[in-house]
Simulated assay, not measured.
Amino acid sequence: MTRRAVVTGGVSGLGAATAERLAADGVEIITVDIADSADVVLDISDAAAVREAAERIGAVDILINSAGIVGPNIPFWEVDDAAWKRTFAVNVDGTFNVCRAFAPAMIESGWGRIVNFASMAGKDGNPNMIAYSATKAAVIGMTKTMGKDLAQFGVLVNAIAPAVVSTPMNAETAPDVLAHITSLIPMKRVGRADEVAELVAWLASDRCSFSTGAVYDISGGRATY
Rank of each mutant, 00 (worst) to 15 (best):
T2Y: 09
R3L: 12
V6E: 00
V7M: 08
G9F: 07
G9D: 07
G13P: 04
G13M: 03
A19N: 05
A19R: 01
R21H: 03
R21Q: 12
G26L: 11
G26M: 13
V27C: 08
I29N: 01
V32D: 09
D36T: 14
L42V: 09
D43E: 15
I44S: 10
S45Y: 04
A47H: 11
R51S: 14
E52S: 10
E52T: 07
G58A: 05
A59S: 08
I62D: 02
N65T: 09
A67V: 04
I69E: 07
I69Y: 08
G71T: 00
E78N: 14
D80M: 11
K85E: 15
K85R: 15
R86V: 02
F88S: 01
V92H: 02
D93T: 01
G94D: 05
T95L: 05
N97A: 06
C99H: 00
C99V: 03
R100M: 04
F102H: 07
M106W: 00
G110L: 06
W111F: 07
G112S: 03
R113D: 00
V115T: 13
S119N: 11
G122C: 13
G125S: 10
G125N: 13
G125W: 08
N128D: 14
Y132C: 10
S133D: 05
K136C: 11
K136A: 05
A138S: 14
I140D: 01
I140H: 06
K144F: 02
T145M: 03
K148R: 15
V157F: 01
N158M: 03
A161K: 14
V164G: 00
P168R: 09
P168S: 09
M169K: 04
N170L: 02
A171H: 10
E172D: 12
E172R: 14
V177P: 10
V177W: 10
A179K: 11
H180E: 12
I181P: 01
K188C: 04
V196E: 02
V196Q: 01
V200Q: 01
W202G: 01
S209L: 04
F210Y: 13
F210E: 05
S211L: 11
T212C: 12
V215K: 12
V215I: 14
S219A: 15
G221Q: 12
T224P: 04
Y225P: 00
